[in-house]
């Protein structure tokens, strides 16, 4: 097999994923370069969350190939994949109710050098500092989302898988998240973003993968976004 191209962070090829008896992904292929921000867009149930979860090995069974930093991960368990420098912010946010805010923040082990310090994170997210002793799920939805982001920024992960960050959040918080993502991009993070809020996605992303019924239907670079508007609307069913 050829060496990974320089600067390639993720390369999935012919990825199939199953939950029990249901076959959810049917041969997904995508690649993301270092420092790139891409989105997965598609209807509810099209398989975007499943793509993120299969990149991490969090599905019942997966076949095909997923290379992260050039390392083939298809047979690795999730904790080994995470240690390649992957941070995951799940759709349901995954804040632990039996852990304090600070424990939630400190939970993910450091996977690589160069993560943000706790002091820095408390500076960026002063609300978390203020409520650090409270139990995680006592936070508001927006604060929980900030916590879910903060805890993966501590670990030194350079590849971030972010699922529906803005779902159900107030516009001010969506704005704050947008600024945060933009900063992260400037800092060189590689991001795969699943996003309902198309405006949010459109302003940030370099490229868009349209997901439809467990397949990648289109890849649209940001330059082609305007001309592809109708096509996208059709896929999203709006």
């Amino acid at each position: 097999m050829a060496d990974p191209q320089d600067g390639e962070m993720v390369k999935a090829a012919d990825l199939h994923a199953h939950y029990g008896e249901s076959h959810i992904l049917h041969g997904v292929s995508l690649s993301v370069s270092r420092g790139e921000l891409i989105t997965l867009i598609g209807r509810n149930g099209s398989g975007r969350t499943t793509i993120l979860r299969s990149l991490l090995g969090l599905v019942g069974r997966r076949t095909g190939s997923v290379r992260i930093r050039g390392v083939e991960t298809i047979d690795l368990p999730p904790h080994r994949i995470a240690r390649l420098g992957v941070g995951y912010c799940p759709e349901e946010r995954g804040i632990f109710s039996r852990l304090s805010v600070e424990e939630n923040l400190m939970l993910p082990p450091v996977v690589r050098e160069g993560g943000m310090s706790v002091e820095r994170l408390y500076e960026i997210f002063p609300n978390l500092f203020e409520h650090r002793k409270a139990m995680g799920t006592r936070l508001s939805g927006g604060e929980q989302q900030m916590l879910a982001m903060a805890r993966i920024l501590r670990t030194g992960a350079q590849l971030l898988l972010l699922d529906e960050l803005t779902e159900g959040l107030a516009p001010v918080i969506v704005q704050a998240l947008k600024r945060l993502i933009r900063q992260l991009k400037q800092l060189g993070f590689t991001v795969i973003l699943v996003e309902q809020n198309f405006h949010f996605a459109a302003e940030l992303a370099d490229r868009h993968y349209v997901v439809d019924r467990g397949r990648i239907a289109e890849m649209i670079p940001k330059e082609a976004l305007a001309e592809s508007k109708d096509k996208i609307d059709a896929y999203l069913g709006v």
Partner: peptide, 25 residues
């Protein structure tokens, strides 16, 4: 303790704890 926080978190959502890089098995 920190170890205990893995255990408590694992009770709630073991998959996610493993996705963070903890050897849950």
């Amino acid at each position: 303790t920190k170890l205990g926080s893995y255990l408590r978190a694992g009770t709630e959502n073991a998959d996610l704890v493993q996705a963070f890089g903890v050897n849950v098995p």
